[in-house]
Amino acid sequence: MENQENKVGFTNFAENLNGRLAMLGFVIAVATELMTGKGILAQLGLM
């Protein structure tokens, strides 16, 4: 944490965190679909 300049915007830390959270959300969505037998849109009542 020596370089404490850019804390807002498109930083490497922000992009890595965003990618990891997106991967986690995708895995949770697929696991939920497998457990319930319904798609994500059906679970939300959109289909």
Rank of each mutant, 00 (worst) to 15 (best):
G9L: 01
T32W: 07
N6T: 14
L41A: 10
N3F: 10
K38P: 02
I40Y: 08
G25R: 15
G9H: 05
I28N: 02
M35Y: 11
Q4N: 15
L24W: 01
T11A: 00
Q4K: 15
L24H: 10
A14N: 15
G9T: 00
A31S: 09
F10K: 15
R20K: 10
Q43A: 01
L44C: 03
M47I: 09
V8D: 15
G19H: 07
L17I: 10
A42V: 02
T32N: 04
T32Y: 07
K38W: 02
M1T: 09
T36H: 03
G25I: 06
V8C: 13
I40V: 13
K38V: 02
F10R: 15
M47K: 12
I40N: 09
L44G: 08
G37L: 06
I28V: 13
N3L: 12
T36W: 03
G39E: 08
K38N: 07
K7N: 12
G39D: 07
A14G: 05
N16A: 14
Q43W: 00
L44K: 02
L21Y: 01
N16P: 02
T36S: 04
R20W: 05
T32K: 01
V8P: 05
N18R: 15
V30N: 04
T11R: 03
L34F: 08
E33V: 08
R20D: 07
Q43S: 02
F13R: 14
L44T: 03
L17E: 12
G45I: 08
T36G: 05
M1V: 07
T32S: 08
F10W: 13
N18E: 15
G37C: 03
L17G: 01
M35S: 11
G37A: 04
G37F: 03
G25H: 12
K7G: 08
M47F: 11
G9F: 00
L41G: 00
F13E: 15
N12I: 05
G9Q: 02
A42L: 09
G25D: 14
L34I: 10
L17S: 06
G19M: 08
E5A: 13
M35Q: 09
M35D: 02
N6M: 14
A22M: 10
G25Q: 15
F13H: 13
A31L: 05
Q43M: 06
I28Q: 00
G9C: 01
G45L: 08
G25S: 14
Q43V: 06
G19V: 09
R20N: 03
L21T: 05
L46Q: 05
